[in-house]
């Protein structure tokens, strides 16, 4: 396995986690599911969605140069599709009211 392939796979994992966190931080996502993250979980997810891709980018540049950056961007797209399809497949939409204690701070 070349360094570029390794960074691709690694970035795919990081982006998938980051975008999964991003999805769960959206009020739209939470309205349709019965799982509500606690405030500390929200904070770690907020940190994760920024830090994980940043880590991936730094590693990509260090390990695979400009090819790594191309791979990093491509991984974001594929990671997003994986998260979207997995979410759609795992939990079909449910019309459910949002728990009052789980409102996102940024959304007032």
């Amino acid at each position: 396995m070349t360094m570029l392939t390794a960074t691709l796979l690694f970035n795919l994992v990081l982006w998938s986690i980051a975008l999964a966190c991003h999805a769960r931080l959206q009020s739209g996502w939470q309205r349709r599911r019965s799982w509500f993250p606690s405030r500390s979980a929200q904070q770690s997810m907020q940190a994760g969605r920024a830090l994980l891709p940043a880590t991936g980018l730094i590693l990509s540049i260090l390990l695979a140069g400009s090819e790594g950056v191309v791979g990093w961007v491509a991984s974001a797209s594929l990671g997003g599709v994986l998260v979207a399809v997995t979410d759609a497949w795992r939990a079909p939409p449910r019309a459910e009211t949002r728990h009052p204690s789980r409102r996102l701070s940024g959304q007032g």
Binding site: L19, A20, H22, A23, Q26, G80, A84, A88, P93
Partner: peptide
Amino acid sequence: PNLVAFRPQSSSPRPWIDAHVI
């Protein structure tokens, strides 16, 4: 907000829009 939102079970044209936007 809708970066990874895909709702294939919703009524049309929502799945088409989601697929297009994703």
